[in-house]
Every structure is written in C-alpha cells, then in structure tokens.
C-alpha cells in the first residue's frame, strides 16, 4: 500500500525532486502500481483544488463593514450634512452649483429654511478626508485618460444620439468640477465643497466607464 517512495510523490508531482531522485522514482513508478495509482489520485486532488469556485457569504457583510469604517449611506449623509452647514458654506456651495441641474447637492440646497446650522456631528465622516487631493491624483487622471481613449476609439460604434447624451453629461460634470474647484480655491477647508467635488469626479469616472463599456461592446 505504501512504501518509501509514497511520501515523495507530492514533491515529484510539483517538480521539486532533485534530478537524481526523480530518475530513481520514475524507475520505481514503472514497477510499482500502488505508487502509480496514488500519484494519479494526488494529481486529481490538485486539479480539484485549482478548480474550486469562490462563493460570496450568504449574508451581506457590507452594512456591518460600512458601520465599522464610519461610511454612511448617501441618504443618512444628506440628513446629517443638512444640520451641520453654516450660512457661508451654503453661500459658497451655491456658487458651485448654479450650473448643476440635478443631483443631491442641488436638492440639499432646496431644503426648507428651518434647517438651521448647528454643531457638527461628533464623528466626522471619513468621506471628507483628503478629497482635495484627487485632482492631483495621477491614478485618477490615468483612469480618466484611459477611459477617454477607449471611448474615442469606439466612438464610431455608438449612434449619434448616444454620443450627444454622453457629451452633454460630461460637459455638465466637467463644469461642476471646475466650479467646485474654483470655489474650493477660495475656501479650501470647506467640507461640503470637498464632498461635492469628490462626487462629481466619481460621477465623471462612472459615466466614462459606462460609455467606454458601451463603445467597446458594440462590435
């Protein structure tokens, strides 16, 4: 059933036996049916291991993770922000948003006047950290450039109406980004503007991604 060579079969299978031992084992394999059978089974175990599928958890772990890291859902974020704005912040935001026709930011500004400023929330949302560094972020810039290239190459595959919608939306987003950036230049610490800029930059990325997928998929 098992002999001195059985324990070396995995190493043999993995190509890890020194040359001399390999030759000796191969000679043994020709003579020993047990070792040949075991080797074949080991081969199947390895193949089976490599073919295993990954399965997601049965319950969604995201809500718990989001709670842990302090990320709040968009709706909760809106509700919080509404209570923590100062009048100058709102004024600055309004400058940034004059051209924006829709979006959470715009809705937020139209809250009833009863939403008065109060002290800010006890735990600052990590949503607001370092957002201003995006524009200088080379990875973001590279991703945008790469998607724009795919879009440019696949553009002829899209109908004109689609291209028009994409360009119009990109125009709106680019304008919102520029406005948020210039408003931020005047008020760099403004957390609302930082959040807004981050959202617009992400929107641009998402739109480009969708458009590029569309352009690439139409063959």
């Amino acid at each position: 059933m098992s002999d001195t060579w059985t324990n070396r079969l995995s190493e043999y299978l993995d190509g890890e036996l020194p040359e001399s031992e390999r030759a000796t084992l191969e000679a043994h394999l020709r003579a020993c049916a047990d070792c040949r059978a075991t080797l074949e089974q080991l081969r199947r175990v390895v193949a089976r291991a490599q073919a295993l599928d990954d399965t997601p958890p049965t319950t969604d772990l995201w809500p718990a993770i989001a709670r842990h890291v302090g990320v709040v859902s968009l709706d909760a974020r809106r509700a919080r922000r509404r209570l923590s704005f100062t009048v100058p912040q709102l004024a600055a935001a309004a400058v940034a948003l004059t051209l924006l026709s829709a979006g959470s930011a715009w809705l937020l500004l139209r809250r009833p006047a009863g939403a008065r400023p109060s002290q800010s929330t006890t735990t600052p949302s990590p949503i607001l950290t370092n957002v201003g560094t995006y524009e200088a972020n080379p990875r973001y810039a590279a991703a945008v450039a790469s998607l724009e290239r795919v879009l440019a190459q696949g553009r002829s595959r899209l109908d004109t109406a689609t291209v028009r919608v994409i360009e119009k939306n990109l125009g709106i987003i680019d304008r919102a980004i520029r406005d948020a950036q210039s408003a931020l230049a005047a008020d760099p610490a403004n957390s609302y503007l930082n959040l807004h800029l981050a959202q617009e930059m992400r929107r641009k990325l998402e739109l480009l991604r969708q458009a590029a997928a569309l352009a690439g998929a139409r063959t």
């Binding site: 709040v72 990590p126 949503i127 973001y140 590279a142 790469s146 290239r149 795919v150 352009a215």
Partner: peptide, 26 residues
Amino acid sequence: LRRDLDQATRDAETADVALAASGDGR
C-alpha cells in the same frame, strides 16, 4: 478594444482604490 476595455476596467478599479483612500465609501 477588448484589451483596452480590460485595461480600463483595471484602471477604474485603481481609481476606485484612490477614491476609497480619499474617503469615498461608495
């Protein structure tokens, strides 16, 4: 195009990493 799209998908993930590192929960 497919290759570029794969690259774009990777780039988009890289961008998501950058966004997440900046505090973007989504």
